Amino acid sequence: MLPDYEIKKAPSIGKQIDAVIFFVWMLLLIQFCLFLLFPQGEEVEGIRFRLIANSNTIEDQQVKNNVKHHIEPILLKYENNPQETYNELEQVVNKLSNKLDTTITITKGEAIFPPKVLNQGISSQLMTESIVISIGNARGDNWWCALFPKVCYKEEVEKEKPKFWVWEWLKKKFST
C-alpha cells in the first residue's frame, strides 16, 4: 500500500500573468507615491523674491505688474552684488510708493513661501531667505521667483517631463 500523497498542480499561466500584472501595478503605485512625496526640480538654491499685491482687484494687480516692471531689471543684477542691488531696490520701492500714493514695503530675511502647484507636483510651504515687497495690505495674488537660477524672467527654460521607469521599461519591452 502506497502512502497518500497530495498531487499539486503547477499554477496556471493565467495566475502567473495576473501576478506579474499585480507586481507591475504595485511598482507603478510606489513610484507614483514617491513622486508625490518628493517632487523633483522645485527646490532651488539662493534667495527667493516675492511681490504681493494689495488685493485681487484689477487695479491692484495692475499696480503689482507696474512695480514688477520697474524692479525686474534690478533683480538681474542681484547675483553679482546683493547688497548694492538691495539698496537700489529700496530706493525704487520708496519712489514708487510716493509716485503711486500707496504704501509699499520691502523686507529681507526669512519668510514663509506658501505651497504652490507646479508642473512637477506641489511644492511644500517653507521658510527661506527672501526679499518680500508688499503693496498696501498685501492680501492679493503674488508674483514670486527664485533668483538663483533666474527662473522668474522672460527666458523660458525647456524642462524635461518626469518619466516613470517602469512605464519606460514596459514601452521598450513591448515595442520590439
Rank of each mutant, 00 (worst) to 15 (best):
L27M: 14
I58D: 13
K150I: 10
K108D: 05
F38S: 03
F49K: 00
K68N: 15
F113L: 06
E84T: 08
R50I: 08
P114S: 12
E42K: 09
E160I: 14
E42D: 08
W167N: 10
R139G: 07
I7Q: 11
L29N: 03
V20K: 04
I58V: 15
E42A: 01
L51A: 02
L2H: 13
Y86H: 02
E45T: 12
K159C: 06
Y153F: 15
M127K: 14
K15E: 01
G41P: 00
I47K: 13
K68D: 15
I74P: 11
D18A: 01
Y78L: 12
V151T: 09
K68L: 15
T57E: 06
T128Y: 12
S124H: 11
G46T: 03
V44P: 00
D4I: 15
Q40C: 02
P73Y: 05
I13R: 02
S175V: 03
A138Q: 00
I122Q: 04
Y78P: 13
Q62F: 12
G136L: 07
A138W: 04
N142R: 04
I106W: 08
P3H: 02
V20E: 03
P3R: 03
N94Q: 15
A111H: 08
F38I: 08
F113W: 04
I104T: 05
K64I: 06
V166D: 04
Q16C: 08
N81E: 12
K154E: 15
V157C: 01
K15P: 03
Y153T: 14
V132P: 03
S55Y: 02
M127C: 08
E160R: 14
L100P: 01
K99Y: 13
I30Y: 00
A19R: 01
L75T: 11
G136C: 07
Q16L: 09
R139E: 15
I13L: 05
T103M: 13
E90S: 03
N56Y: 04
D141A: 13
V63H: 07
P11H: 05
N142L: 10
N98T: 02
F148D: 15
Q40Y: 06
L28A: 05
I58A: 14
N87F: 06
K172Q: 10
L170N: 03
N66C: 00
G136Y: 08
G109M: 14
L89R: 00
M1T: 10
I71P: 03
R139F: 07
H70S: 15
Q62Y: 09
F148Y: 15
T176E: 14
G121M: 01
Y5I: 11
W169S: 10
L118I: 12
F148P: 04
I30A: 09
I133C: 02
V132K: 05
K108L: 10
R50D: 12
H69V: 12
N80K: 14
P149T: 02
S134A: 12
G41T: 05
I135K: 00
L28H: 03
Q61K: 11
N87Q: 11
V24Y: 06
N137Q: 14
N66E: 13
K108G: 06
K150F: 11
L89Y: 01
L51I: 01
K171W: 08
P73K: 07
E168H: 04
E158N: 13
N119R: 08
V63P: 07
S97W: 04
L36K: 07
K154A: 10
I133E: 03
E88F: 04
K9R: 11
W25R: 12
V151M: 09
V67T: 07
Y86S: 06
F38K: 07
Q91M: 11
T105V: 14
K15Q: 04
Q83N: 10
D101S: 09
E72I: 13
T176M: 07
